[in-house]
Design a binder for these strands. Structure first.
Lengths: 198, 198
DNA sequence: ATTATTTTTGAATAACGATTCATTATTCAT
DNA sequence: ATGAATAATGAATCGTTATTCAAAAATAAT
């Protein structure tokens, strides 16, 4: 019986994230991924069904991580509502910034892939959204969040803003102070741009 | 001298918008665009250099329209600062919703194309952003907008939120009340999600 | 050392679809 | 009518690259 050398499956995924982030999914070459992963082209097809399969597994990994982290947060009763909301923003922020190439891939490719094939998309994405909406509804029920805001619209608003900002930072990190981005997302989503004078 | 029949250039652009929105840029077939435009494949290459050229002209048209409309707004002195901001949101909102397929194409393709080839991208995009930032800085100077918010971050925040919401509506219009989306974008960007109790 | 089993390899395949360009069609001026 | 001149056509080309699979290499058990 032959043993597997190293962890090719993981090497390939890591390489693919970099290649997809740099070139975009369609311009990314399997041969380039193989080269970066120090693996033959054939090996890629041992561990993954095809090119699509690779990107779907990238999504699955990140949304899975976000989902599990949010799950740990959603039922914490030691936090005030606003503390819980801030913790959610921090968690999402940390996850994306610690995986900046994955963040770029998601920002660039997710929308189209969702359109193309909703069935094979990671279930963690919808589960994550559900948990997020639950937190917002909890805030409304506790009369902390504005009940006139549509929960569904708010989550698109917030995630859309997140997506653009994280992607912009990941693409040109020299243009943004990461902590400033974090602070501004928190502040803007809670208080908006206007100065409140009463 | 032979005259051109109808307006093939425009027919092709309109068809391409629909095909790109439906299939995504890379899966879109030139043959499908030709079919939808009632034009031969060869004619497409009479009016456009290549596939890229078509999508760049789609972007140019929409961002050009946004830029010119914003230019008409930016120096209006008959509006209060908040009225001007609301008018800007309304204008962006109307432009995107009146061109919903183009909105989908932009939401799905712009980021990657910007990365791929910043030079051939429409100059109206940057010019539009500049005008938008000027309005925000005017709001700060007039002590209506919060001076602690980073202008650059705010525009990514707002446009990111816009992008996701318009795209979501354009993809599943049955899921959203358009006026509710408009109202919520205005409210959230100005006042945030928290109830202000003082 | 030999065999069995599993892993790895990468040259060859095969399909695809953007782009070209020689040909045909249409219009207009004379 | 005729002939420029331009517009339109679409079959054929050509490069590209994801995927396959038969062979080779590595390991473990005996």
């Amino acid at each position: 019986m032959r043993k597997k050398e190293g962890n090719k499956e993981e090497d390939i995924l890591k390489a693919a994230i970099e290649v997809f982030a740099q070139a975009g999914f369609y311009d990314a070459k399997i041969s380039k991924i193989a080269e970066l992963a120090n693996v033959s082209i054939g090996s890629i097809y041992v561990y993954y069904q095809n090119k699509d399969d690779i990107i779907y597994k990238i999504f699955d990994k990140l949304w899975g991580s976000l989902y599990h982290n949010l799950e740990a947060l959603v039922n914490r009763s030691d936090l005030s509502m606003v503390e819980k909301y801030d913790a959610m923003i921090d968690m999402i922020f940390d996850t994306f910034t610690e995986n900046s190439s994955t963040a770029i891939v998601i920002a660039h490719e997710q929308q189209r892939l969702l359109l193309r094939n909703k069935e094979s998309f990671t279930p963690y994405y919808d589960k994550f959204i559900d948990l997020g909406e639950r937190i917002v509804r909890e805030g409304v029920k506790k009369k902390i969040f504005n009940p006139n805001i549509d929960t569904n619209i708010f989550r698109h608003f917030l995630l859309g803003a997140f997506r653009d900002l994280i992607n912009s930072w990941a693409t040109s990190p020299e243009e943004f102070q990461l902590n400033s981005v974090r602070r501004n997302i928190k502040f803007l989503s809670k208080y908006g741009i206007l100065i409140h004078n009463q």
